[in-house]
């Protein structure tokens, strides 16, 4: 499902003395199957924006079109429940939302609520628990005996059980250790590819943004400050610095090399391997000259 956002504005507590504009004039189009990353400081409007994508918040102006669903300021969309079937959100610290006695029941909660037959839902749970990297024996256990990282996987399985076609991830790796972070991001990227999902990732990690995104949106003060593919966004460190954002370490490294060795290097270096290759190219050129 394509997403088209037109002239979106959101004010909290509209019409009261506490009115605060959190988003203004957002225009954005996310074609189906895109890996879209959203970056910005706390308070830049990221969370407000994503809560519009399944109707948790309504625009105070403008519209959001998702497939054939339309959410518009001042107009009631009667099919919000149907829309929410298609748009899954993994909120920050999703493990705080686990509540059932067993892991299976927790994963089943969403699908059963949306009328999926129990047998079918159970099949999904059995498949999903493996997809998130746990085995079937976990299904009968209590979610509260798990480690934080495992609980997060269970919560993610619960969102996936709804078979969303759009998956929204709000800082999904916050608080995890480096291995946990890598495993969870690899999982999301695999799902994105295998299931043909549209993925919207909110993150502070420039490394993840560079590695996975088709398109990066940088928000500031409720508006769009920059937008483009990783190469475009990270080829301009000055613009990022002005927004007090960093470039990925790989890109910093390339810039340092260029400065020190006064050489031009490829700029789309977003993985360790590519960074090592750039360093090698410099060392090997040295060898040729000698």
């Amino acid at each position: 499902m394509d997403i088209t956002i037109k002239g979106l504005e959101h004010s909290y507590s509209k019409g009261t003395p506490f009115e605060r504009k959190a988003l203004s004039n957002i225009n954005l189009s996310i074609p189906s199957g895109t890996f879209q990353t959203i970056i910005g400081h706390t308070g830049s409007g990221k969370s407000t924006l994503i809560q519009h994508l399944n109707g948790l918040l309504k625009p105070t102006q403008g519209s959001i079109q998702i497939g054939d669903f339309k959410i518009q300021a001042g107009v009631k969309e009667k099919r919000l429940k149907a829309l929410r079937k298609h748009v899954g959100i993994v909120f920050q610290y999703p493990e705080h939302q686990l509540f059932e006695e067993t892991i299976e029941k927790d994963i089943l909660f969403g699908p059963l609520n949306f009328g999926v037959p129990e047998e079918e839902a159970k099949k999904r749970a059995a498949r999903l628990i493996q997809q998130v990297g746990l085995d079937e024996s976990y299904l009968s256990r209590s979610p509260f005996d798990l480690s934080g990282g495992q609980m997060r996987r269970v919560a993610i399985a619960g969102v996936l059980a709804m078979k969303p076609s759009i998956l929204i991830l709000d800082e999904p790796t916050a608080g995890l250790d480096p291995r946990g972070r890598r495993e969870i991001m690899d999982l999301f990227y695999r799902l994105h590819e295998e299931e043909g999902l549209t993925t919207i990732l909110v993150t502070h990690s420039m490394e993840d943004a560079a590695r996975f995104s088709d398109d990066i949106l940088i928000m500031e003060k409720g508006g769009i400050a920059l937008q483009g593919g990783p190469e475009t966004i990270f080829s301009n460190p000055e613009a990022l610095k002005k927004l007090s954002l960093d470039v990925p370490e790989t890109v910093q490294f390339i810039h340092r090399l260029e400065e020190r060795f006064t050489k031009n290097l490829p700029h789309s270096v977003f993985t360790l391997e590519a960074a090592v290759d750039a360093a090698l190219s410099i060392l090997q050129k040295g060898e040729e000259n000698s």
């Binding site: 340092r256 020190r260 060795f261 090592v276 410099i282 060392l283 040295g286």
Partner: peptide, 27 residues
């Protein structure tokens, strides 16, 4: 990764600055 390819470093580099300096010396 560079050591595995046969480059010898005189010391461990924990910052980018140190690393670029070491690469300079190697080169």
């Amino acid at each position: 990764a560079l050591s595995e390819k046969g480059y010898d470093f005189s010391r461990l580099t924990l910052s980018q600055e140190e690393l670029v300096n070491e690469l300079w010396t190697l080169q």
